[in-house]
Amino acid sequence: MHSQNLRLWVVAMLLWLPVLAFAAADLEINTPAISSLKMAMQSRHSQLASHYASGAVGLTRDGLVALRDAALVPLAQRQAVGSLVAAENQDRKALYREIARANGHPEWEEEIHSTFAQRWVQKAAPGWWYQNHGGAWVKK
């Protein structure tokens, strides 16, 4: 009985290992690529902020952004906002990939996506829209 419990503990610990290992990921790690991506995203943020506030653009559950209601954007700007969203997503994907790579674990990319998704929602201003775990849009 004792050995069975021990075996269960060992199995449980082994199952937890990847999680524990990921918990050790340094999300603040910096490399030239990461800082260049952050700078690009920062400068783009001023163009996107009003669209987050209006609800035209929302934060997705996988750490990206999406044009959730194009009708809130004046017609002449819709194409440009679509381009901004595409560029932001390109940078976000590259950022998560770079952080995983800089941590020496490219396979963590997916977990970093979802960790950042929670971070973005926490940092979002009241009134911004985000996707909950079920994929539904929710106003913060």
């Binding site: 044009l67 209601d69 194009a70 009708a71 809130l72 954007v73 017609l75 819709r78």
Partner: peptide, 8 residues
């Protein structure tokens, strides 16, 4: 409905 196809 999505606003992705519109004219004015």
């Amino acid at each position: 409905a999505s606003g992705l196809h519109a004219g004015e």
